[in-house]
Design a protein around this nucleic acid. Structure first.
Lengths: 165, 165
DNA sequence: TACATTTCCCACCGCTATACTCGGAAAAGC
DNA sequence: GCTTTTCCGAGTATAGCGGTGGGAAATGTA
């Protein structure tokens, strides 16, 4: 039980964890924001990223490939290597990111594939699930990495000036 | 492998089940709609409900208590017993139902309890998670059981007339 | 050329939740 | 007294979550 190298956010183990964005999704988007903010001066290594974001390096090594295989980032191996964005921050939506990390997703299966449930024709709840999913996707689609990076920068600045005063 | 008594919707076992409304949530709301539609002529038994909705009786026996302990339905034991709504359909929101079934819920923990993550002050993603959660709750709050029951009835009628023609 | 850094790959692990099934007791109407 | 019903507590198989750990291969730098 070596607690000296505490990593990440102290995952809460107390009940009812269902229907959440997983750490994969959250850590991954944080990684994307971090890369967006730091890749202007060359590739960002996972070591630095994990340190800055206070995340487990080994765990990130597992998450990052998902972003790469979806074509959101590119990698450079070897010393001074790391990751860079594959597109402009404006052109990467949060939906791209979440979908890369958590897979194509639906709130309930029957919304995506009505064949799974022969009751959609008579189900009074179906429409609501559909509405909720649409609302989520609307936000996911309209939020870009550029938006989030800007927000992050703004917050950092605000925090800094608060410290100074 | 007794497949003679096929129940429910054939839970898909193929990957990526994360971040969904669970069967508890879905079956439970369907149960509520069914009770709303059928309790005018006396309590509805789980046997009938499960049959109509094509759900496992034994599984429902486990889900229904959640709705009862949250005060959404009342029970009558013994023969001719069953369940009735404890309030008017107008006064039961989908949020009440989902919360009874899945527990108090948040998309990501730090949205509900910022103490869990000391980075909310600088996290560029936090606001988005918050927005999404708000959008979901807006729909959950504004949808009532009466709405869903009405929709269900309308759909059933449409289906029937389609069959007739 | 040696070396440190970095991505990459694969295996393993404990834990918890999901989605059930099963058996039986207690209540209540007929 | 019999059947119908709720009620209660166990047990179970499977899979995902959230990691850790051990290396191999690439690639800049001294």
């Amino acid at each position: 039980m070596d607690r000296s190298q505490r990593s990440s956010e102290a995952v809460s183990t107390e009940g009812a964890e269902e229907m959440k964005i997983s750490t994969k999704g959250r850590y991954g988007t944080r990684a994307m924001i971090d890369i967006a903010e730091n890749c202007s001066s060359g590739p960002v290594s996972l070591r630095m990223l994990a340190e800055r974001q206070c995340l487990s390096l080994k765990y990130m090594e597992q998450i990052i490939p998902l972003l790469k295989s979806s074509g959101l980032i590119r990698s450079a191996r070897g010393a001074r290597g790391g990751y860079v964005l594959a597109k402009k921050p404006r052109e990467i939506s949060l939906r791209d990111i979440v979908e890369a990390l958590e897979g194509a997703w639906s709130l309930v299966d029957c919304v995506d594939d009505p064949a799974l449930c022969d009751r959609t024709e008579e189900c009074g709840a179906y429409d609501v699930w559909n509405d909720i999913q649409a609302a989520i996707y609307k936000i996911l689609n309209s939020t870009t990495l550029a938006d989030m990076a800007a927000r992050s920068k703004k917050k950092a600045k605000a925090a800094a000036s608060r410290k100074q005063s």
